[in-house]
C-alpha cells in the first residue's frame, strides 16, 4: 500500500499501514504539535489528526516547524 509523503512515495505493508494521521506521525517520529498536515490539498487540523484516516494513493504534505524567532 502506497502513499505519497512530501512528494516521495512510501510503501507500507498491510500490518504497518497507519490508521490515522496521528499514527503516521508516530511512525515517522514527528511531534504532532510541530507539523501542519495537508492531504490531497486539504489542511487537516491538528485536533483532527487522530480522527483522520489515510487511504491508498493519497498525497500528504507535512510542513514541519522548529523553534526560534
Amino acid at each position: 500500500m502506497i502513499i505519497r509523503i512530501n512528494g516521495s512515495e512510501r510503501q507500507f505493508t498491510r500490518d504497518e499501514w497507519p490508521a490515522s494521521v496521528a499514527q503516521l506521525l508516530d511512525y515517522l517520529q514527528i511531534d504532532q504539535a510541530t507539523v501542519v498536515a495537508e492531504i490531497d490539498g486539504q489542511i487537516v487540523q491538528r485536533k483532527e489528526f487522530s480522527n483522520t484516516s489515510l487511504a491508498e494513493g493519497q498525497s500528504i504534505e507535512l510542513i514541519r516547524f522548529v523553534g526560534g524567532g
Partner: peptide, 25 residues
C-alpha cells in the same frame, strides 16, 4: 514551534485568500 504550527494551520484552514510568511530553522 507549536505556536508557529498553530498560526500557519489557522491561516491555511480558516482564512481563505490570506498568505502567511513563516520561519523555521
Amino acid at each position: 514551534a507549536d505556536q508557529k504550527q498553530m498560526l500557519v494551520e489557522t491561516v491555511l484552514s480558516k482564512m481563505p485568500g490570506k498568505v502567511v510568511v513563516s520561519v523555521s530553522g
